[in-house]
């Protein structure tokens, strides 16, 4: 939920960083959100967060980061919520985390599916969210194009 009346917030939930495009796309998403005045908070495994830290040593894009369990604690404990939530998904655990966010958070949920089995995984989603899926493993461009389409639609709606 928006934490003050001015600034919207987005939770970016990173999965296991074994698929190369995740870190690149997460940085790109941070850039897009900041351009729209949305404050991003990253939640992820230790390795996923370290990859972000090392890729952005000047902290141009990465600001607040938190542990996955701490983020879930804050939302279930009603201490905090977000306007938007983007969940990076390339395996069944990613679907499970996105399903959890759909249940516990009031945020508008985006499921970003990538990796070898992105389309199959998209078929597993049975909860309300916007699906952004592309078979992208090493080359982020298919997922970037899909995300650009969604962000443009979202920006247009926000301006109305």
């Amino acid at each position: 939920m928006t934490e003050n009346n001015e600034e919207k917030t987005a939770l970016i939930l990173l999965g296991c960083p074994q698929v190369p495009v995740q870190t690149s796309m997460a940085l790109y998403l941070l850039h897009s959100l900041k351009q729209q005045g949305i404050r991003p908070v990253i939640a992820g495994t230790t390795a996923a967060r370290k990859l972000m830290e090392v890729a952005d040593p000047g902290r141009y894009y990465v600001s607040e980061m938190t542990d996955l369990d701490d983020a879930i604690d804050a939302i279930t404990g009603k201490e905090r919520d977000f306007d938007l939530c983007f969940v990076f998904i390339h395996n069944d655990s990613g679907i499970a985390y996105a399903g959890t966010m759909a249940y516990i958070s009031k945020a508008r949920l985006y499921a970003l599916l990538f990796g070898e089995h992105a389309e199959d995984l998209a078929g597993e989603i049975e909860f309300p969210c916007e699906v952004v899926a592309a078979k992208a493993v090493h080359n982020p461009m298919p997922l970037k194009r899909r995300l650009d389409e969604v962000m443009q639609q979202w920006a247009a709606v926000s301006k109305q």
């Binding site: 879930i72 939302i75 516990i104």
Partner: peptide, 16 residues
């Protein structure tokens, strides 16, 4: 239990 239910120090994750 609902998604996010905490047991010991872990959350139950998934779709109901």
């Amino acid at each position: 239990v609902e998604p996010g239910y905490k047991i010991f120090d872990v959350h139950i994750i998934g779709v109901p």
